[in-house]
Design a protein around this nucleic acid. Structure first.
Lengths: 163, 163
DNA sequence: GATCACGTAACTTATGTTGTTTCGAATGCT
DNA sequence: AGCATTCGAAACAACATAAGTTACGTGATC
């Protein structure tokens, strides 16, 4: 019965909910508190994950010029810019602008006017929502968040290792 | 924390990009053009998918009172309300309010002030974006979309089966 | 009662972040 | 020079969930 056997043009993309932005912001703000280089291992312990995951994710930030990495003794990661020069939007973009929405459009029937109308409406709403999100992310710098932290309590931080 | 009681929880979960909303809107508008019952099989052919997927997805719409299903000869799915009485938001909610965002928060370290500040900022931005999205979805009815279709072209529709 | 069509359960598929291991390359200390 | 440290990158498994599929039961119509 299956109407279209060969047709696989489903443009379906799976998107695991992506916590890279949240995690990298966390890391960068911590880095802003210390001048010394931080190793991937230390950061991984901080986030309860693996050093390789850290390197993989921070690679985008390095290419965008927000952090630098150094090998060998005393090496690790350092901020390349002050926190005030990095917005949440900058980090988001450095991560490759991962998909914002978990809601997708079905584009099976490009010629169907109903689908066109549906998708145009949904797309418009999502574009507007994304514009708001991007605008807000662009207005907040990492320094702003660091100040929030100071406002919440003096000097407390995350311990490396599990909570 | 817990800014709002009904607030979505941003736990780390995998989320495949969800085209159910788009697809159901598509189906409902088509149903608005015919008075007769439409079988899951016909709808499935229309969307190049499986009847069971249709039943599974439409179950939410039925429970919410937007469609009715009848078994046996001449059975199938019918609208329970005129298109003008159903907003895109209604459909979204009938589907169980699936996750809007593919961006998640890391909540590994509930006691970490940095994480709290990061998540509060991200959550605020996402909540605002979601509010915009919900507002827009609530303003558009299925009848509005059907009118868009008429405006684009007279009477053309999707043929059951592949495009 | 035979057929049609939905209802539901159970299983498989597909996809991308994440987790992990492993090797190589570059850096710095002894 | 030799060696420990640390990043870089490739390769693979794990995980979660919408979508796809199969199978069987239930109820309505002819």
């Amino acid at each position: 019965m299956s109407p279209t056997d060969g047709e696989r043009d489903w443009r379906e993309t799976t998107v695991r909910q992506d916590s890279r932005l949240s995690r990298m912001l966390h890391v960068l703000i911590h880095m802003g508190r210390y001048e010394e280089a931080v190793t991937s291992e230390t950061i991984a312990a901080m986030l309860s994950t693996n050093p390789v995951v850290i390197r993989r994710t921070m690679a985008g930030l390095r290419e965008a010029g927000y952090v630098r990495s150094e090998k060998g003794h005393g090496g690790g990661w350092r901020l390349a810019l002050p926190l005030g020069r990095i917005s949440l939007l900058d980090v988001y973009r450095a991560l490759g602008e991962p998909p914002v929405f978990a809601i997708g459009l079905s584009i099976d029937h490009a010629g169907c006017l109903v689908e066109q109308a549906v998708n145009a409406s949904l797309q418009g709403a999502m574009a507007e929502a994304e514009a708001i999100l991007v605008a807000r992310l662009g207005q907040v710098t990492l320094a702003d968040l660091a100040a929030d932290v100071d406002r919440r309590h003096e000097g407390a931080g995350c311990n490396p290792g599990p909570v």
